[in-house]
């Protein structure tokens, strides 16, 4: 019996890899949905968005890269869909160079029109880039949304936006034109002119910096979508009211999808996630039983006190 546990203790980690792979893959094929209750921090963010008047301008800062796409992209898509459907205008920027591209991809993916382009007053407008159709609502680049690209300088960028938005993001991404040529930028001089900031962040610079600068210095309400790793860091700010809501990881994304009525990838992935959790917990339990049965005989070495 002891032998069995000892063997288990020194098991090749690749065995664990296989188990995890299966635990995550199988539910993808089964496609079972799980009930998702909405937590307080997600509700706060949603309520804040609900309270915004029509035509309110929202700054969306995409501070993530493809690595965190599975967690944050569903949030971006759900949020953009909600903005278009509720007549809210949004301005995409990024403190990470990959962020604005991720924003573009989200816009491309939420577009529901099957057409590729239309010609209007001699201008060719592409769906998914110039025009976005969500249900019966349409949003247009430069009027209802815009992408101003990336700026380097981490938190210093936020600091600069606080005093002059135009100096910080001089031009748009799609046409490379000065931003003030676009009607959506009318009335936006500083960070404080935005009605809300939605920060989707996977690390530094991210939510912490947005709280420190945008909220603490310039008093703009900031709501955050975080990877699950970043979320615990953001919790203390929720408690102090510095953050207006947190979407934590895929679960937060799924809850948000539920609130805005857009069941998509985050919701579908919750089953895989739950399975994986159960297995990780099993690993911890089995590992500890083995440890106690063998009293840690085959531990490699223990330098810790």
């Amino acid at each position: 019996m002891n032998k069995f546990w000892e063997r288990l203790l020194t098991i090749d980690r690749r065995a664990i890899f296989v188990v995890i792979f299966l635990a995550l893959s199988v539910p993808i094929f089964l496609q079972i949905g799980l009930p998702i209750p909405v937590t307080r921090e997600v509700q706060i963010l949603y309520d804040a968005l609900e309270d915004l008047p029509r035509g309110a301008k929202i700054l969306v800062s995409c501070d993530y890269d493809p690595g965190s796409e599975p967690e944050l992209q569903p949030m971006a898509e759900a949020a953009f869909k909600y903005f278009v459907a509720n007549d809210l205008r949004f301005i995409i920027i990024g403190l990470w160079p990959q962020g604005p591209i991720q924003g573009n991809r989200a816009i491309e993916d939420i577009n529901e029109s099957d057409d590729e382009l239309i010609v209007e007053n001699g201008d060719t407008l592409y769906f998914g880039a110039d025009l976005v159709v969500v249900g019966e609502d349409t949003a247009r680049y430069g009027i209802d949304f815009i992408n101003l690209g990336f700026q380097v300088g981490q938190e210093l960028v936020i600091q600069r936006m606080g005093t002059s938005f135009e100096a910080t993001f001089p031009s748009d991404r799609r046409f490379g034109r000065p931003q003030k040529e676009f009607p959506i930028m009318e009335g936006i001089y500083r960070l404080a002119d935005f009605d809300f900031v939605l920060n989707l962040s996977a690390g530094y610079p991210g939510t912490v910096e947005w709280v420190q600068f945008a909220v603490d210095r310039f008093h703009v309400p900031v709501g955050a979508g975080n990877t699950a790793v970043q979320a615990p860091l953001a919790y203390p700010y929720l408690d102090t009211g510095q953050l207006t809501g947190i979407l934590g990881g895929m679960k937060g994304g799924a809850e948000f999808e539920r609130l805005v009525g857009h069941r998509a990838r985050a919701t579908m992935s919750m089953t895989s996630q739950t399975m994986a959790h159960i297995f990780v917990m099993l690993f911890i339990v089995v590992g500890n039983i083995a440890f106690f049965v063998t009293r840690g005989k085959s531990e490699r070495r223990d330098l810790r006190k």
């Binding site: 664990i16 890899f17 995890i20 297995f279 911890i284 089995v286 590992g287 500890n288 440890f291 840690g296």
Partner: peptide, 16 residues
């Protein structure tokens, strides 16, 4: 990381 997290929880999380 998903794999590493699983193996770390198996190996490293012991009630020492």
């Amino acid at each position: 990381l998903a794999f590493f997290v699983a193996s770390a929880s198996y190996r490293a999380f012991r009630a020492r």
